[in-house]
Every structure is written in C-alpha cells, then in structure tokens.
Design a protein around this nucleic acid. Structure first.
Lengths: 341, 341
DNA sequence: ATCCGGAATGTAACCGGTTACATTCGTGTG
DNA sequence: CACACGAATGTAACCGGTTACATTCCGGAT
C-alpha cells in the first residue's frame, strides 16, 4: 500500500469532493476543469465542496489520465567547465521558470552532459515524461538535435543555428547578433573613430559570423580586413590577439570585441601598450557579461536580454504544446553605455 | 481518450514487456524493480524483453502507484532584482541538478516570489507533488519556513540560519564563514600587515556576523574596532565606506572585505586615494564571485564551493527521502590567491 | 399522447504502473 | 505416501484522476 511519510495527512481526492458535493466523480472532475457540460449551480456546489475539503488536484493522476505531464524539460548539455564562470545559463533558466509561472507547467532541469545521461533523457522524452523541451545549449551538427526531432516533442532552441534543417520543426529564440553588432559599430563611428579593429571569437561560430556581418554593414569600406582577427573566447586570447594587432597596426583608434571577455583582454593589452581608454582607443564589448560592469574602465557593451530570452522560450514552448506551429523569435540587443566607448 | 501529439508512437507499457517475456505484468514489474521474489532466469527474460521493446518505465504511472513523485522541488523565493547580477543561484542550482543525476529524481524549479505563487507552491507540496524541497534562499523569520515545516516534507536549506528553531526538522548545508574569514585574516597577517581594516556587509546578516567573528579570532588585539565598518553589499557602498575609512585612518595597510563587490569598491577607493594594491594595501574579498577574477588587480578572495553546496543539498534531500534524520553539513571555504593580497 | 432531441449527470473503463493476496508447484518431512 | 511449507508467479485491486458512452429527464414538435 502506498503511503506517504509519517505525518502526511491522507490527501483529499476528487472522490471526497464529489461525495461532499453530492455528485459523481465525473461531474466533480468536469466542474474542476470548468467544462460547459455542468450547470452553473452544480459548479458552485462543487467549488464550495473544494473549499471545505481543501482539495488540490493531484498532478500525477491527471498527468496519467490526460497523457500530459504538465512539465517542460529544460535541457542542459554543456559540460560544467565551459559555463562555470558564466551566469548566462542561470539567467536564461530563471527566465524560463518565470515565464512558466501561472501556466501550470513546471520546469524540470534535465542535465545530460555524458552520453549515457543523454540516452536516458531521450528515452524518457520518448515516453512523454515532459510535454516540451527547451534546449539551452544547442549547437550545430549535434546529433542530439536529430534525436530530439525524432521524439516528436515540441522543442525550443535557445540560440541561433544557421543553415539549420530544423526550421519547420523546432522553435527558436535568439538575440539578433547582426543588429547588436551594428549598434556597437555605430557607436564608434558616431564617436569619430576612423581606424577600427575587430577582435572576434572563433570564425566558425554562428555568433561570430553574425557579429562580423553587423560590423561590416555599418563600417563598409572603412573596415580594413587586415585589422580583423579571430581568436578564442576568453580574456587571455583577447589580450594576445590585441597585443599582436597593436604591433602590426599601432594606429588603431577603436576595438570592437567579439565578447566581453575578449574585450577585457583588449583593455589589458591597451593598458600595457600605454594607450588610454577611451581617449586613445575606444573599446566595445559584447554579451552584457557581469565583468563588463566592473572592468577598468567599465566596458560599453552590447547586452543580450537573457532573462527575456527565457521568457520567450517558455512562451514558445507553451504555444507549441497548445498546438501552434514552430516559429522563430529574434530579440533585440541593446547598447549599454559605460566608459570604454 | 488521451492521445499524444500527432506522430507520437504509442508508448511501450509494462504489459507489452510482460507479453513479450511470457510473464504476468506483476512479475515484469518485479523484475524491473529488481525484487528478490523473481528468479534470476525470469529476470533475464524480462530484461531481454525490455531490450527488444525499448521499454522505459513511465514515471507518472509509477508515481501514482507508489505515492512518490521522484522529483525534488528547488524553491526560489528571491525577487529577481537582488540576484540578477549574481551567478550564485545558477551555480547552486546546477550543483543540485548534477547531484541528482543517476538517482532517478529530477529537480523541479519552483519559483515563488509573489505571495500567491507561494501559496500555490505550498498547496502542491501538501499534495506531495515533490518528494523533498531544497530551499535555495531561506532567511530568518520567514513564515515560509513555518509553512514548509507544516508540510512534513523533507526540507534542505541552503544557507545558515542562526538561532533556528528548525534544527531537528530541516537539513542544512552552508559554507563555513568563520573558517573562511580566518583564512583571509591569516593571509594578511602572514604578509606582515599590521593595521587591518574590515569593511563588512549589513551588521544583522548572519554571514556578516560569522565573517566578523573569524576575522576577530585571528587578529585578536590587533583588530582595532575603530577600523571596522558596516555598509551595504554592493560596490558603491564598498567604495564609499573605504573612502571614509581612508580619511579617518590613512595608515591602514590591509582591507578585509565582507564581499567581493565590496572589495571591488575598496580597490576603486584605494586607487583614487593613490594607494598601490597590494604594495601599500592588501585587499581580500569574499565569495569567489566572478568579478574577483577580472578586477584590477585581480582579487585574492575566499571562495564558497557553490556547486558543491548544490551537490550536498541533493544528497541531503535524497537521504531524507530515504528516511535519514535531518542533519547539517558545513563546507570548507578556500582561499583563492590572486594579486591583491 | 407520442416521439425526438439535447442537456445534465452517472457509470465504468482507462491511463501505466505497484502490490496484497491467491494460487501453483516442487520438495523435504513425518 | 500424504502433507506442510516456502518459493515463484499470477490475479486483481488500487493509486487519482479523465472521458467515452449510457442514462435520465426535460420541453417542444408532430
């Protein structure tokens, strides 16, 4: 016999409510779900009975009967190390949680870093243990995407996947890197900068491609390809790349960085080379990372609306659960003006 | 009739496995749960059938039958603003998720910032929609704690609650602020500093109290009360407080800060006052916040093992679900040596 | 008056498991 | 050889809901 922990009061079931209201379980259930098959008067009687008994519908029973879990799986595949120092994941997650409140759906975190965890997760998805999946960390060429498509579940990807074959299948939400990059480039142009350098992340990354495109669109012929370099995402890489750039092009008067960590590296390289920021060289970061606010000088940066991204992801998931077709939402980035540019 | 989304394959139930293996549902179920009532041979037959059919147990059905949800609720009550710039929440959450993997339990985020969300959460707890609650953001005097105790569910608090009346009822995990503070104080003493200033957070905060105690234990009579000040948690507060302190006590040669954000403020105040860090004044932060790594100069700080805190919280929850008595685990903080001290 | 149809409710099956109790079967014992 | 007993398995009830289908009851049309 299933029993709760000691001290757990026997829970009130819909049968209790039905008895209390003097109707059948079926009618009680219909009243609970506000079906238009029941008289207003009967509904009132049932609701009073609910009030008296303190009934709360048991999600498991309902899930079993309806085939719906009333949960949204939030899938995280990134290995710990990469995201460790990055609050990005936490913010989007929080946005998803907030976006789901009030909907009756709960976010369930599904950590699938290892191959076996991944297989387990997929099998449980296959069994409809969640009603939709929000994938926080998709990347191009992942076979996980293929498997997700195979489950037939509604899937929302957080992040842009270029040349994706999943356009009509998955919903996607991402921040508009091209637009964000334009904002950054416009800022340095408006500031009268003439010899702009660009220090980007890895060249094959879709975010990198878009940011580069945005810079190029605004700078046009003023963008000298020789002043564009690619490097890693982190501060050390940004420092080294900027130092090299300063050697070959000592005359640069602005640096557009592919990430805030790269930008912090650039600041260090410029400082070491004796340049004043922003007097001699303007620097604009990218991401709205926490470090941008506390660097010296504080970084002007292009911020992604991460929490909002979570909100939108939640909405997309709920819509697809409701039968809506997959769609893509693109969020606007915003320029956060601080000192560096 | 409950139906999945179009395209959903009818799921494999334990009845299918039973038929495939030529046994009854009961036996199949027992084999799945590794009961010692079934022959090794029968178990093998059932497992082969599982292999062939691709069966995965349906968590909802099992939950309904056993009265267990196989989920752990992760309760977050903090309003958005406070934690917005702080990855703390995300890291602990991630730790909980990791600590739960392999246990069969899934973390469910329960966001309860508003009063109504809180009431809803409590009602669902009352109905055993989760098997345990990990409370990420408990604070003293919260009536939520009272209500949680009332549910009879296993509860794990992340964070120290002094003078708590819940000692035998809730499990608790927290980092040892006293010990962490001792590490910081020992560092500056070993460095030969003589006139140590302390810039703490709000005086009524339990973390503040403990950190102050740790400093005092190590510094003893060398700690002049006149050089101890309380202020807010943020950078601006740290800056202002340190600036005032420099006016009244220009001879200080070390600052022990109550948080990394305060410490960053101290760095700024010292820089403005023309002091070199660490040559003239040593600075030690607290928390292991991301900004500590990127400040100028990089901060030596006392780091909380946040992810591990999540791991331990998960373990405590699982243990209590298994019937273990509540207990408290205290984690060691560690000194992260960078440049500032 | 009879029949029909629709609205409101009841009955019972079902979702996918678990488990108390019944049954079968082989074996050691009196 | 009959019997008792324990191990392995089967039968069926149950967890807490939802819902297809059956039933009842009513008013209006013929």
């Amino acid at each position: 016999m299933p029993r709760g922990r000691p001290g757990a009061p026997r829970s009130v079931t819909i049968a209790d409510v039905a008895r209390e209201a003097g109707v059948s379980r079926a009618t009680a259930s219909r009243a609970v779900n506000d079906s238009d098959l029941v008289t207003a008067e009967t509904k009132r009687a049932v609701h009073e009975a609910i009030e008296r008994t303190g009934f709360v519908v048991n999600a498991r029973g309902r899930a079993l009967a309806t085939g719906r879990a009333e949960t949204v799986g939030v899938l995280v595949t990134e290995p710990l190390d990469e995201l460790f120092d990055d609050p990005t994941y936490g913010r989007v997650l929080r946005g998803v949680a907030e976006g789901l409140t009030g909907s009756g759906f709960l976010p369930v975190i599904i950590q699938a870093s290892s191959e076996s965890e991944r297989a387990l997760a997929l099998r449980s998805f296959g069994r409809r243990s969640v009603d939709a999946v929000v994938h926080l960390t998709p990347y191009r060429g992942s076979d996980l995407l293929e498997s997700l498509a195979g489950t037939g579940l509604p899937v929302v990807l957080c992040g842009q996947l270029d040349d994706s074959p999943y356009d009509g299948i998955f919903s996607t939400v991402y921040s508009d890197d091209v637009h964000g990059a334009r904002l950054a480039a416009e800022r340095v142009l408006a500031d009268g900068r003439e010899r702009v350098a660009v220090v980007l992340g890895p060249a094959d990354n879709p975010a990198t491609v878009d940011r580069r495109r945005g810079y190029a669109e605004v700078l046009g012929s003023r963008l000298d390809e020789a002043r564009v370099v690619h490097t890693g995402w982190d501060t050390a890489a940004g420092l080294a790349a900027t130092a090299r750039l300063l050697k070959s092009h000592p005359d640069i008067d602005a640096v557009l960085a592919g990430s805030d960590r790269i930008a912090v590296g650039s600041l260090a390289a410029l400082h070491a080379a004796g340049r004043q920021v922003p007097e001699d060289v303007a620097v604009v970061g990218f991401d709205g990372h926490a470090i941008a606010a506390t660097s010296t000088p504080p970084l002007t940066t292009v911020a992604q609306p991460l929490v909002e991204e979570g909100h939108v992801a939640a909405r997309l998931a709920l819509d697809m659960i409701g039968g809506a077709a997959p769609r893509t939402e693109v969020l606007e980035m915003s320029l956060v003006s601080r000192v560096s540019a």
